[in-house]
């Protein structure tokens, strides 16, 4: 697996490159956008780690360029800002994941592997509903080509809903889908709130979750 890391803090980058190297991931380092473009011209990468603030521009520019040229290489953004707006923007520009600085290197490694796996899985089992693409294997979803930043429980509920798309799923059934998250019990009243969170993510798209009072919830194409 070959990774490109675009990061101008050399000591940080070299440390990460060394760590990933020990973990068996070959990692090239580019300190500027210019160098990153050169690297990509001569080498195909399985994933890219991209810092936002770079000496010759924003990492988001490179991301936009890539996506504009239909390059679907998974990108993990590194951001120094932990603010929500920043993450949302990164994901909106087509990033697949993000990590705030400072980060745990094991987590970085795990996320990279997940990205690459997801990229491979995308060619396999996928459920498509309007502009929503759901990858069964790792429970990740894309809406209109943009990665949805689902939490684990949101993903679990979407999984149940989308596997039974077109049918009404009861609250209790959805609650059962959360079984197995042994670290926290959220209670059945939280289901409504999770549905609201999912709806917020689908807002403005052609996918909608309908409610039938006393019966349950159903995912399907938005009406009109």
């Amino acid at each position: 697996m070959r990774i490109l890391m675009v990061e101008d803090a050399v000591d940080l980058a070299e440390g990460v490159v060394a760590h990933l190297g020990r973990a068996g991931l070959t990692c090239d380092l580019a300190e500027t956008l210019e160098a990153a473009r050169d690297c990509r011209a001569v080498q195909r990468y399985d994933a890219i780690i991209l810092d936002i603030n770079l000496p010759d521009g924003s990492g988001l520019d490179l991301l936009r360029e890539m996506r504009a040229s239909a390059d679907r290489t998974p990108v993990l953004m590194l951001t120094a800002l932990a603010e929500v707006d920043d993450r949302v923007e990164a994901l909106d520009q087509g990033a697949d994941d993000y990590l705030g600085k400072p980060f745990d290197q094991r987590e970085l490694e795990a996320r990279l592997r997940a990205l690459v796996r997801r990229d491979a899985a995308r060619k396999e089992e996928v459920i498509t509903l309007g502009s929503l693409t759901y990858v069964l294997k790792d429970r990740s979803a894309q809406l209109g080509g943009r990665q949805l930043d689902l939490t684990r429980r949101e993903a679990a509920m979407l999984d149940v809903l989308i596997r039974h798309r077109g049918q009404y799923i009861s609250k209790a059934r959805l609650y059962d889908s959360l079984y197995g998250f042994d670290d926290a019990d959220v209670g059945v009243n939280a289901i409504e709130l999770y549905i609201a969170r999912l709806r917020k993510r689908f807002a403005g798209s052609d996918v909608a979750i309908a409610t039938q009072r006393g019966v349950g919830y159903r995912i399907g194409p938005a009406d009109g």
Binding site: D11, H19, N53, A80, K101, P102, F103, Q105
Partner: peptide
């Protein structure tokens, strides 16, 4: 706030990576 966040987070991340590297 955003400048501080940016200017401090990167070096802290670097220190952490270096320390982890040294330990490894």
């Amino acid at each position: 706030i955003s400048d501080t966040a940016h200017q401090l987070r990167t070096p802290v991340a670097a220190i952490r990576v270096q320390a982890e590297a040294a330990q490894a």
